[in-house]
Design a protein around this nucleic acid. Structure first.
Lengths: 145, 145
DNA sequence: GATCGACCTTATAGTCACTATAAGGTCAAG
DNA sequence: CTTGACCTTATAGTGACTATAAGGTCGATC
């Protein structure tokens, strides 16, 4: 059995809801260090690796790109960097997320409107949905002009 | 000059707000036919190609995957397929979009909450945001157990 | 008919964040 | 000492493009 506070890649994976291949991918990308190995070549992680991985996963769940996560980790490692830098990154991300949210909302409305048009009793030749996708609408016309 | 109703790839690109490489990519993926060529090898498209491309772009703008767009095109080509098939695809897509919307909304709230925690006057060592990302919160703890 | 520049051609590699697969080696328990 | 779960590396694939290189064609002008 492995020492307490030590993990194989699989144990780290379980503890962080990550796949082992993903962990190795993070290592390759430089987000996680090259861990020490057993004589047989198995990776041996410790709790600080787990902490770092959990940080990565949380930030990823919040929609940060790996690049952003890396920058965040760099900042976090630099204890005397100004906290405002972190907040700036967060604010920009929040702006991006809100924009995506707006777009997705508009999309939802459009799809909902589209789904209302189906009588459900016809053939494709008279399908209002296909029709709507096929015909130039105001937006297309305006953009193309 | 090119005949009326005929387009080079670049003209098709301009008329559909697409990049030429993307058009060739769609051709490669089988969404657009291999068009006839000039003696010199230039692709020559006509208005039906433009219609089809506009259909693709509209569906893509609505968040359909290329695979779905392809299925939709297949249905549209089959004039006697039941319209309900199209509606089923649309409904499923609407469900997916609404799910993404919910997730993005939750994300927005979390990020907003996080951004409220910045005092903006400290160093990383006392950054509440980094803190929040670093520390196990209820969700992580619950999932890992 | 030479030249120019805008446009076209193919092929290949890169992006992002993984996921999948193959072929083989290690670990610990029984 | 065998078993089976786990680990190793390397390579290729995903989706929907984007970027780049190296070269060929078109049509207008001189």
């Amino acid at each position: 059995m492995m020492q307490v506070g030590k993990y194989t890649v699989g144990q780290l994976a379980r503890a962080s809801q990550t796949k082992t291949v993903t962990i190795r991918y993070y290592e390759q990308r430089g987000l996680l260090r090259d861990p020490p190995r057993t004589p047989g070549g198995y990776r041996v992680y410790d709790t600080s690796d787990l902490q770092r991985l959990l940080f990565i996963r949380r930030a990823r769940n919040l929609g940060f790109s790996l690049r952003s996560v890396n920058e965040l980790l760099d900042l976090a490692d630099l204890n005397d960097a100004p906290c405002a830098d972190v907040n700036a990154k967060l604010s920009q991300h929040l702006i991006d997320v809100r924009e995506r949210l707006d777009q997705l909302q508009a999309l939802e409305e459009e799809l909902h409107g589209l789904s209302q048009r189906c009588q459900g009793d016809g053939k494709i030749s008279s399908c209002q949905i296909i029709e709507a996708l096929s015909v130039d609408r105001d937006r297309d016309a305006a953009r193309a002009s």
